[in-house]
Simulated assay, not measured.
Amino acid sequence: MLLPRRAVLLSLAALGASACAGLGKAAAPGPAGPDEVVPLWPAGVPGGVPAGLTEHIVYRDNPFGLLDRAAHDVTAPSLSVFRPARPDGSAILIIPGGGYKWVVIDKEGFEGARHFSARGAVVYVLRYRLPHQGWAAGADAPLQDAQRAVRVIRSRAAADGADPARVLVMGFSAGGHLAGMLAARYREPVYDAVDAAEALPARPDAAALIYPVVTMTRPFAHEGSRLCLIGADPPPEQVAAHGVENRVHAGMPPVFLMHAQDDPAVPVDNTLLLHAALRTAGCETAMHLFETGGHGFGLRGIAGTPREVWPDLIAGWGREQGLFPAGAPD
């Protein structure tokens, strides 16, 4: 999908990080940002940064008049940390969408982080690398970042007031695909150990996939995600290998699924395929379908609609899984 022509492109190489931050404030003073930004790979990403990539932020129009940014050409994967006033011990790793073409920052990232941190969770928003941009790991570059993110979260859990055994990964759209791959492929060594955090498990304790991209098989594949992940003409074995539904196994954490049945971008069949595969494998799973809602709504425009309950549904499910304490607010 083409960005609106009025989007403001800020190049970090041309303007510098401080100038970018200043222009952002002048353009749209938004709500509070993260308490801390933690680099995932302090010594550099695995395999190094491909030549010609410069990470930059795009400001996008939206009908709600809200701050709406996307990170393009990510070269410095990171975790944006949102700390609650009263931690309840839970931790949430949010993986925003963007069709593997860019990474959404606000709509499926910081807005959800503020919502769930206000209810007691320490929330980490992942900015991950995009698979089509020449990384040594190819399609597994985002999975490297996701595995590393869970290990980094567990390595700092005590300092952040979180329990390392209560980590929920929550992925939206293409971020749901990455969260699903993380839940399925947590034990696969996709990068070499870099520090002591690698001794910690990459398996999340639960996964919530929100209108997720799941399959790479047509006719239900999201074409943009498929193209950016595995290319224009991938061999059949690669198509199968990158479908979450084909990687399901009995050792996966519990999975929460949510989708709108009228989603025009990522057909609801993605969620239905994964739910069926999880049930066949004997995995714990819950599924919630809304009749309407389209795609990519996040927390926007849901007030007064059936979709406004989705954060409460996750909160209730999370309490059943032992992620959130009994009596925690929805």
Score class of each variant (00 low, 15 high):
residue 197 A to Y: 14
residue 163 D to K: 02
residue 199 A to E: 11
residue 124 Y to G: 10
residue 196 A to Y: 05
residue 105 I to Q: 12
residue 97 G to C: 07
residue 179 A to W: 03
residue 177 H to T: 01
residue 102 W to D: 13
residue 195 D to V: 02
residue 151 R to L: 10
residue 176 G to K: 10
residue 171 G to S: 01
residue 130 L to Y: 09
residue 123 V to F: 06
residue 103 V to N: 04
residue 98 G to Y: 08
residue 195 D to W: 04
residue 143 L to A: 00
residue 137 A to M: 07
residue 141 A to M: 13
residue 95 I to M: 12
residue 190 V to F: 02
residue 160 D to E: 15
residue 114 R to D: 01
residue 100 Y to M: 08
residue 130 L to K: 09
residue 165 A to Q: 13
residue 108 E to T: 10
residue 117 S to W: 00
residue 198 E to R: 00
residue 146 A to S: 10
residue 122 V to W: 15
residue 199 A to H: 02
residue 193 A to P: 11
residue 162 A to M: 06
residue 140 D to E: 15
residue 103 V to R: 08
residue 113 A to E: 06
residue 196 A to W: 00
residue 141 A to T: 10
residue 121 A to Y: 03
residue 114 R to A: 04
residue 106 D to C: 01
residue 140 D to Y: 15
residue 126 L to T: 13
residue 195 D to F: 01
residue 170 M to W: 11
residue 164 P to E: 11
residue 105 I to T: 14
residue 138 G to C: 06
residue 197 A to T: 14
residue 152 V to R: 15
residue 141 A to L: 10
residue 194 V to T: 15
residue 165 A to S: 12
residue 100 Y to I: 11
residue 198 E to A: 10
residue 196 A to S: 12
residue 97 G to D: 11
residue 141 A to Q: 12
residue 189 P to E: 15
residue 143 L to G: 02
residue 171 G to I: 03
residue 201 P to F: 06
residue 120 G to D: 04
residue 139 A to I: 14
residue 129 R to Q: 13
residue 107 K to P: 05
residue 132 H to M: 07
residue 148 R to L: 02
residue 102 W to L: 15
residue 188 E to T: 12
residue 172 F to W: 09
residue 159 A to Y: 09
residue 137 A to K: 09
residue 121 A to F: 05
residue 167 V to H: 03
residue 95 I to W: 11
residue 134 G to M: 00
residue 180 G to Y: 00
residue 161 G to E: 02
residue 120 G to M: 09
residue 108 E to V: 08
residue 108 E to F: 07
residue 180 G to D: 04
residue 198 E to F: 14
residue 200 L to A: 03
residue 152 V to T: 15
residue 152 V to A: 13
residue 186 Y to R: 02
residue 189 P to V: 05
residue 97 G to A: 05
residue 100 Y to S: 10
residue 129 R to S: 09
residue 170 M to G: 00
residue 163 D to A: 07
residue 167 V to Y: 01
residue 193 A to E: 10
residue 108 E to R: 08
residue 126 L to S: 13
residue 159 A to V: 13
residue 148 R to Y: 08
